[in-house]
């Protein structure tokens, strides 16, 4: 990897265990600003767990223990004086299954900025977020409809808009297309390309084509260990590890 910039987020020797069983083992990984980093690997390899540690979403799971350090702009994300709410204001997340609130489309997007009293006109903010998420044209005439009436692909873009409305620095995406059809998936991939201009994106996926299409860097995890990490082109065309080659060529997984 040739990037010499300071990483925005960095995992150093991170081990995460559920009730003593390590799901992520001694992973060190740097995430760079305004790039898309993909984390790939077979099911159960710990990629979601690793992703969730980057904005402290594992805090809500009982019996999780974590060793090692996660640094955000060189300061410890898990430091004693760190407020996890502040962490999530800067590091947003989109989940595997669309999870809009059972509220109107408008209020789904406006909810985060409102409770956190973000400055500016909320209408402007909601419109901007929906436009960035390429959903505005489809919903602009029915902002007061329930979000639950949207299709799965629209709901997921709404969830992306919800994350964007907070104007975070980083957006974590946990298999954002796994519940979507190919058309919706293509739209969200295009969207990620757009968003890269302004945001740092980390995406977990088990779809290798997706990782190779959208990401700048790719990390390959297997059984909780980081097997290989580098430029996406290299990981897919000239992998250094035999295991990576087997996986990206579809020999297993």
């Amino acid at each position: 990897m040739k990037n010499t910039d300071l990483p925005l987020l960095e995992a150093r020797g991170v081990t995460i265990s559920y009730s003593g069983n390590a799901a992520v083992k001694d992973v060190s990984l740097a995430i760079y600003e305004k790039k898309i980093t993909a984390i790939i690997g077979p099911s159960g390899c710990g990629k979601s767990t690793l992703l969730r540690s980057l904005n402290r979403m594992n805090d809500f799971i009982d019996n999780v223990t974590q060793e090692g350090q996660i640094l955000y702009r060189n300061s410890d994300l898990y430091g004693a004086d760190v407020d996890p709410v502040e962490v999530r204001l800067r590091i947003g997340m989109v989940f595997q299954r669309p999870n809009p609130f059972p509220k109107s489309i408008f209020r789904n997007v406006a909810w985060g900025p409102t409770i956190n009293r973000l400055p500016g006109d909320i209408n402007v903010r909601v419109e901007r977020a929906l436009k960035q998420a390429a959903l505005w044209n489809e919903v602009k005439d029915r902002l007061d409809d329930s979000a639950l009436n949207l299709s799965g692909g629209q709901q997921q873009r709404l969830c992306i808009a919800r994350a964007l409305a907070m104007e975070p620095e980083v957006i974590l995406m946990d298999e954002p297309c796994s519940a979507l059809d190919p058309v919706s998936t293509a739209r969200i991939e295009d969207l990620m390309y757009e968003l890269k201009q302004n945001y740092t994106i980390v995406i977990v996926t088990h779809n290798m084509q997706q990782a190779s299409r959208v990401s700048d860097y790719t990390a390959f995890l297997e059984s909780g260990r980081l097997i290989e990490y580098g430029d996406t082109d290299e990981v897919f065309t000239r992998p250094k590890q035999k295991r990576t080659e087997d996986y990206v060529t579809g020999r297993f997984g």
Binding site: M57, V85, E86, G92
Partner: peptide, 14 residues
Amino acid sequence: PGSLREGAYSVGAT
């Protein structure tokens, strides 16, 4: 669903 809670936490809710 827990996913709803996670969605709320992910936009910086207490």
